[in-house]
């Protein structure tokens, strides 16, 4: 028996929008501590790791560890049927090969338009390869406004990486003299680090911008970069990307 209720159903919608362009099919792993997902893109150079802790759900019942394979494109289509203010309930069981998403509008504010919609989606068998990602010390950790990071990635990608139209150089300095803490740029540097990454992937990661006002980018020369979007009170979406290096 699996039953989860998320008052802010829009969180799962945003999670799906942030990962569906990177990964087509993925296993959602449910345990008593929460919902996790780990999946690589088809070229195996980028990885997404999701955590939604059980405490972040209004109701969370998971009698035994369950893994559900879902097509993220189809799941996104179903979640798009939910209003942004809808409460989302996910239901599953051990015998059927389907998962049910139920959307209910807020009873208090929409008392005259009370609505329940449910969508049943077929599950699939996915042979998911898991990677063990150890905790690591990073040379540099940058915490900055997520919208600013998205803008920088977009601008650089539009200029391109061939040098045909010229070059772009963006310097981001630490800035903590801001009214709101989420507007700060904080650079923790233990050692200088210089790395090259595929902007196409970075741009895909920035689809997670609506999930968090800030993003944390952790860099070490011998490790994939980690781009982390914290989901308030619930967990995170983390993206890993291998660096481009001289062969």
């Amino acid at each position: 028996m699996l039953e989860l209720r998320l008052v802010q159903g829009s969180i799962l919608k945003k999670v799906l929008e942030s990962i569906k362009d990177l990964v087509n099919d993925a296993n959602f792993d449910f345990s008593s501590s929460g919902l996790t997902l780990q999946s690589m893109d088809s070229s195996h150079i980028a990885l997404v790791a999701l955590l939604l802790k059980s405490e972040g759900f209004e109701h969370y019942r998971c009698d035994r560890n369950t893994s559900m394979g879902m097509n993220l494109g189809n799941m996104s289509k179903m979640l798009k049927c939910a209003g942004n203010d809808d409460i989302l309930t996910i239901k599953g069981d051990d015998v059927s090969d389907t998962v049910t998403f139920m959307f209910t509008s807020d009873l208090v504010r929409e008392i005259f338009f009370y609505k329940i919609a449910d969508f049943e989606m077929k599950l699939m068998d996915i042979d998911n390869e898991h990677l063990g990602i150890p905790e690591a010390e990073y040379h540099a950790i940058v915490k900055m406004p997520s919208a600013e990071f998205a803008r920088i990635c977009k601008v650089l990608a539009s200029i391109g990486d061939t040098g045909d139209i010229g070059t772009a150089n963006i310097v981001l300095r630490q800035n903590t003299t801001v009214d709101k803490p989420e507007d700060a740029t904080v650079i923790e540097m233990n050692e200088p680090v210089s790395m090259t990454f595929a902007l196409r992937y970075m741009n895909t990661f920035t689809k997670a911008t609506p999930l968090s006002n800030t993003v944390t980018i952790s860099l070490s020369p011998d490790l994939p970069v980690v781009v982390k979007y914290k989901i308030a009170e619930m967990g995170y979406v983390r993206f890993y990307l291998t660096p481009k290096m001289e062969e």
């Binding site: 150079i45 990677l131 063990g132 490790l223 291998t242 481009k244």
Partner: peptide, 14 residues
């Protein structure tokens, strides 16, 4: 040129 390695060369597969 610049090349990208598989994630498996950084993290352990299981």
């Amino acid at each position: 040129g610049l090349e990208q390695s598989d994630l498996g060369s950084y993290f352990m597969r299981f």
